[in-house]
Design a binder for these strands. Structure first.
Lengths: 253, 253
DNA sequence: GCGGGTGAATAACCCATCTTAAACTACATG
DNA sequence: CATGTAGTTTAAGATGGGTTATTCACCCGC
């Protein structure tokens, strides 16, 4: 199943990973409520726009129906760090206290569905234990992703960070996916990749080109990123694939 | 209240920030259960030992009663990154799925109290909503701490990272504290600080000495770290103090 | 008082990555 | 077709931080 197919699935009301996980075990009335929510609260944002700014009041949850979202923090001097990237069918949790800790930034055109607190309360009343268990699992997966990245951000070389970045996003994009070709759509500029992995855009370019020149990846077609030698890439990234999958992917994939 | 006083408070059954938060609102029976748990499940670990290893089965929660704990991840090549540091009266959440995502490492002699899943279930049965709200708040504070650090890890200079490190830990150590002197006990080697801020121990030393030579801090007494010029340090760290306090400190301080 | 171990301080050297800048490509717009 | 804009590629020079190694200070056990 392609990127487009996943988003189509979500849009058409047959959502993907996290949504299934969140609603799995809900009784019928709660499920109906969730589906209604999706229709009602969906909103579109153009690529490059900010869905929420750090410090803004915000709903506690957003379900991404379509597009890629970056959670950003920035320093006064203008440097930006992307803390996490959220893909379709996954959940944005910008805050617990009603105030967002991040800029929620649309990397592509994005459709999200806000889940206000009172809606969550109603859901909880309908079917409490599953709700909380799911939220805990989702937030644990996000924490694991971030920790794994932070390890490489603090201790890894540029090449390792880029290799890890490619592997992580490939795994996540193709998580609920059957076909095994190592091709995926990566809708980010080198600048944005740099903000994610903690490198200048120039050095992102150098590093990608080196991997490309060595035949490990292929970025000649800008719409498709191809991983030619997955094992070598995973090796550079010092990844144990199975462990990583268990850690960062929703459990129903 | 000093570091020792806080740990004494915890040990004597009058716990600090997170514990209050977790148990705040619990009914009497649940509170009794928690207190009993503290007596029963408390365990001591010597400085330098690992309480849990990454990949081990682990209880979902540990309350730190005494000592400093580092949550570490490491690469095959031996490099270690500390993802978070947990102080007395705070909670370690190594996993959601029963398998720890970190090495839980004792920076000092440590006393922790394990909270097994079934214990949590019982607590939840006794008083569900507060339990979950608290857990969400705790894990949000941890996430905020980590994001703020990750921003500097990816985008900041060595000096900024060290300044941020000092400020964050000073704020946390003295959170529930009345006296305003900028002195605190920092039980970490420069090697361990380096693992936390993503620098070699040599460069940690260089950077600390520079701050020290410029009169911003004083580390001549190894048991006490003194921040002489808090504003300058916070400025180097590009911190907005009030915002940071709201974000990373438990709400009852 | 002596030897051994751990952590801090400092120096010298090196290289990974940043910065700046300029050329080039792709694509959209009038 | 000409022009503009956004992103990529490459080059050249500067530097922040890593690495290795040595010395120093302190503590602890004998």
């Amino acid at each position: 199943m392609s990127y487009e197919a996943i988003t189509a699935k979500v849009r058409s009301g047959g959502p993907g990973a996290s949504f299934d996980q969140m609603t799995h075990g809900l009784n019928a009335s709660a499920k109906t409520r969730v589906t209604a929510l999706l229709q009602r609260n969906a909103r579109r944002y153009p690529a490059g726009s900010n869905i929420i700014l750090e410090g803004d009041e915000s709903d506690p949850f957003f379900l991404v129906l379509d597009g890629w979202v970056a959670l950003n923090k920035s320093l006064e001097d203008g440097h930006v760090q992307t803390i996490d990237i959220i893909l379709p069918a996954d959940v944005i949790m910008p805050s617990a206290e009603g105030v967002s800790a991040f800029d929620v930034h649309a990397l592509t055109d994005v459709t999200v569905c806000a889940v206000p607190m009172q809606e969550l309360d109603k859901l909880e009343a309908a079917d409490p234990p599953h709700m909380w268990t799911s939220i805990r699992a989702l937030s644990a997966a996000a924490k694991a992703r971030i920790a794994e990245r932070m390890l490489r951000l603090g201790q890894g070389s540029a090449e390792m960070r880029i290799a890890y970045f490619l592997t992580e996003l490939y795994l996540r994009v193709s998580a609920c996916n059957d076909n095994q070709d190592m091709v995926f759509h990566l809708p980010m500029t080198q600048q944005q990749i740099g903000e994610f992995v903690g490198l200048s855009s120039v050095h992102v370019c150098r590093t990608l080109r080196r991997l490309s020149r060595n035949g490990l990846i292929d970025t000649s077609d800008h719409l498709k990123t191809v991983i030619n030698d997955f094992d070598s890439i995973a090796n550079i990234a010092q990844i144990d694939i199975n462990q990583l999958k268990a850690e960062i992917l929703p459990s129903d994939c």
